[in-house]
Simulated scan of single mutants.
Amino acid sequence: MRPAPTTRAQYRAFSTLTTRWIDNDIYGHMNNAVHYQLFDTAVNGHLLEQGALDFRGGAGVFLVVETGCHYFSELAFPDLVTAGIKLRKLGTSSVTYEVGLFRGEAQSAAAQGHFVHVYVDRETRRPMPMTAALRAILERLL
């Protein structure tokens, strides 16, 4: 069943993202694959801002294992997009984010989806439990 668009009030953290000329496709709107890039940028940008991610030297890193998206209205360059982020589920080594993409000051999401990260050992790429500090940062998004 297709969900209804979410609203800004349903999210815990926000990131402002810019669109680029190259994001538009031949139909004059943002290509669907770009939505996933914005999800990735918003989530990882938030983790970096909060000190939860050291992608250059941390013992653990996050790998994306699943994404999905519902589209409600078009986004296009030169739109300014606000990504709302919240958690659907926080496990021992995985986290499911919900991300809403809002055009400008719109209150209803133009697109919304989910993004699943698994926390893995940098070397072995095997899942490992998140640290208490990392969990504390992520719990703020619940």
Rank of each mutant, 00 (worst) to 15 (best):
R2F: 06
P5W: 08
P5A: 06
P5C: 02
P5S: 12
T6C: 10
R8M: 08
R8A: 07
A9V: 08
A9G: 15
R12K: 15
R12G: 01
A13W: 04
S15C: 07
T16V: 15
T16F: 00
T16G: 08
T18A: 15
T18E: 14
I26Y: 08
I26A: 15
I26P: 03
G28L: 12
G28T: 15
H29K: 13
N32P: 02
V34P: 00
Y36N: 10
L38E: 04
F39V: 01
F39I: 04
A42K: 00
A42M: 00
A42G: 02
V43A: 12
V43N: 00
N44F: 06
N44C: 03
H46R: 01
L48E: 13
E49R: 15
Q50W: 13
Q50C: 10
A52D: 02
A52Q: 04
L53G: 04
L53F: 09
F55G: 01
R56T: 13
R56F: 07
G58R: 11
A59T: 14
V61S: 06
L63F: 14
V64F: 07
V64R: 05
T67K: 06
S73L: 06
F77E: 05
D79W: 06
D79Q: 12
D79E: 08
L80H: 12
I85C: 01
L87A: 02
L90K: 01
L90M: 06
S94Y: 01
S94T: 04
T96Q: 13
E98D: 12
E98T: 11
V99R: 04
V99M: 08
L101V: 11
F102A: 03
F102T: 10
A111V: 05
Q112N: 13
G113E: 12
H114N: 13
H114L: 05
H114C: 03
F115C: 08
Y119G: 04
R122H: 02
E123R: 14
T124D: 06
T124Q: 13
R126Y: 04
R126P: 03
T131V: 03
A132Q: 14
A132R: 09
L134K: 07
A136T: 10
I137R: 11
I137T: 13
L138R: 00
E139D: 10
E139T: 06
E139A: 14
